[in-house]
Design a protein around this nucleic acid. Sequence first.
DNA 1: TGAGATATGTCAACAACGCTGACGTAAAAA
DNA 2: TTTTTACGTCAGCGTTGTTGACATATCTCA
Lengths: 170, 170
Amino acid sequence: MSEPTRLHRDPGPGEVPAYELIELFFFAYRDFVGDPDRILADYGFGRAHHRVLHFVDRHPGLTIAGLLDILRITKQSLNRVLKELIETGFVEVRPGTEDRRQRLLFTTEPGHELALRLARLQTRRVQRALEGVPPDARDAASRFLLAMIDPSEHSAVLDLVSGRPREAAQ
Amino acid sequence: MSEPTRLHRDPGPGEVPAYELIELFFFAYRDFVGDPDRILADYGFGRAHHRVLHFVDRHPGLTIAGLLDILRITKQSLNRVLKELIETGFVEVRPGTEDRRQRLLFTTEPGHELALRLARLQTRRVQRALEGVPPDARDAASRFLLAMIDPSEHSAVLDLVSGRPREAAQ
DNA sequence: TGAGATATGTCAACAACGCTGACGTAAAAA
DNA sequence: TTTTTACGTCAGCGTTGTTGACATATCTCA
């Protein structure tokens, strides 16, 4: 062999990198988003469309500002994909009742169906990952993923994933 | 209120979507890659550079084909970022000894340092996520993430994350 | 009521990073 | 010696992110 048998160099001082978890996370996320990608391609949509459709379906009546807050992208980026979802009839807009400057977003029936189909696809992967393990493994997975998120975002994220969007509480 | 109080529609037949885990996974991955992003920006690099640097550092002597196999992108996409990493002196190329058509990739000393710095950053997040939980939680997290990956890839991924790249075994 | 803040839309340009298709070269293999 | 393999490269394109600037409608407050 021209190369010595050591695969890695001395990591030097400091903690030893958690290569295994880092890489597993990368591969897992790739497969996780890969499922929806294939279906979305049939509609001419991409991941950005998926995210918008997903969160609008999860939070009917979500505003533009609320969506921007969740996705953390610019309004220009959002508008590009949102416009397509509206034009193709997957998302519907109604003027705000209290504040008429706002545009309240809803999925249409086809939009809801598509969102559900994609969510079920990802759910199947999650279920397969959790089957055969102790029943508390689901909570353990949730806790782990939450702990991977910036602590400063925990309360906002918990509100969101439990169906209590921040922007509706303000 | 114009909208009824129910936040979500009836999910209909079929399994109830695992919204919580789906969304936690999305937010967790965003923060996970967000850490390196900030540092990479200082170098004019993006995520694609990070992935290449990471896997080259993890597997010194990796070939182009091996890297393409891991990243699952086209050689044109890879070449764009790899060329920049080589020109800026973070990655080094040596001709293959057994097969001189191959280009063996190595990180240079600065490249290794950067790769390590980024890996430590992500490691810190993982460690923070796992501290205060039972010691077997790390294995539980690994098992969960692996189970989220397509079963057909399990053996290849396990080889990879344990430091036994496939392309070196063939 | 009138000024200013707010919610949103839009035009233009650009960058990162995927893709396809086509073609070239050097080295290995048959 | 012919074919296959490993890799590079040119050209063009699509998605999705960015910044900056400007327009409009509506709400809020003095």
